[in-house]
Design a binder for these strands. Structure first.
Lengths: 216, 216
DNA sequence: ACATTGATTGACCGACTGGTTAAGATGGGA
DNA sequence: TCCCATCTTAACCAGTCGGTCAATCAATGT
């Protein structure tokens, strides 16, 4: 248990790294890779620029650290499902989780989107090694559901694209959504309204029924 | 008709402006606002930087010109529909057009997405003056279709978001899509495959039937 | 108590940024 | 033909970029 006993140095080290990562995440998402300068990030983290470069050797290094930090908590869900589960329930909860994430933590989604728009210069390897096997497994799962007559025939890839796009839209295009809805910010009730709308379209769209009554 | 008689100067002026706009559009979408420098744009357009700044006073001016240039051809469609039309047919063709645009001209979509992710610093006014009235009209149209019993009850805003997100995804996230589909580039047949998948989900999702048999 | 290691930071660097300027090339109307 | 407006472009500017460095500071093991 002696690894739990952290020295003061180790504590401030961790704290500073978290500070820098949070500041970098925010600014990279807001201003893009080139727009977020090291000095702006340092200022946001309330540290001297040289100190930021002490913890992360260079800008690329920091950018990759931010991406790594995000991907872990962002891509999960839909992982424990099997053929025997009810696709309506599984997909509904997957959509719901993605909507909650999009509304409550939009920054990672925006950062991911920026990366993709630029051709994924840093995430290409990650996509090949991690996303592709994951989607392959889900592809098979959905195919099995279709073969079992549990849902309509549809290309599973495009179904997953549809779920990702519709949910992440509320994070990436938040500005447009709020402007159209004429709101200053998302409210509690919006999460369920969005979830219901998306789930209604997509689930019925592949021959499933909404698993829950509309919660008021 | 004498305005048709262009002098040599006017011709090169137009040509250079088109050249610069095309180069800027490409680089702004690829590298973001800050990543695309004036010298890179000039190099891409094969002109000296000072010449680019002669035609467009400064970077902001050029950026806005690029956005203006895009929005005209990008946002149309769904405009001549009325309550008496068949929603299935109207929405199907709208989706189809958006998919074609996403696959064949992804750059404008990516530029628009970048703008949105950054909070639409330049497009906010445009959104208020142009997009909001447009979407208000479509909102009423869809509500009328619902009232006429032609389709399921659904919030028209979220339906439009779903159509925009699913279609534009194939432009903005092209890298991810191609990687998942294991292709080097979109092919002719992909347009109809994507259109069919999206239309199948969304139309059936709001209680409509695909208006055309799957074209082989 | 002290030496050693890690942490902090201001000053600095060359490269590049968006933008200006001024001098010359070009072409059209008189 | 000549003049004048438009166009072209190298040279230049101050400011910022990512990154380095060396001097100082703080904490730790002995």
């Amino acid at each position: 248990m002696q690894e739990k006993q952290q020295t003061k140095k180790e504590l401030t080290r961790e704290k500073n790294q978290r500070l820098i990562l949070a500041a970098a995440e925010k600014l990279f998402a807001q201003l893009g890779y080139d727009g977020a300068s090291m000095s702006k990030i340092a200022k946001e983290a309330a540290l001297p620029k040289a100190n930021v470069l002490y913890y992360f050797k260079n800008k690329d290094n920091l950018y990759e650290a931010v991406l790594d930090n995000i991907l872990g908590e962002w891509n999960l869900g839909l992982d424990n499902a099997s053929v025997d589960d009810d696709p309506a329930s599984v997909l509904y909860h997957y959509i719901k989780n993605k909507v909650i994430l999009a509304v409550e933590k939009p920054v990672p989604s925006r950062l991911f989107a920026s990366e993709m728009i630029r051709g994924a210069p840093y995430l290409q390897e990650y996509l090949k090694k991690s996303t592709r096997p994951w989607i392959q497994a889900k592809y098979n799962l959905i195919q099995d559901w279709i073969a079992a007559g549990k849902m309509d025939k549809i290309d599973p890839n495009h179904l997953l694209f549809a779920i990702w796009s519709t949910t992440q839209y509320y994070a990436d295009f938040q500005t447009e959504v709020l402007l159209v809805l004429d709101k200053p910010a998302y409210e509690q009730q919006d999460v369920s309204a969005i979830t219901q709308s998306i789930a209604q379209i997509i689930l019925k769209g592949v021959g499933l029924q909404l698993p829950e009554p509309i919660a008021q």
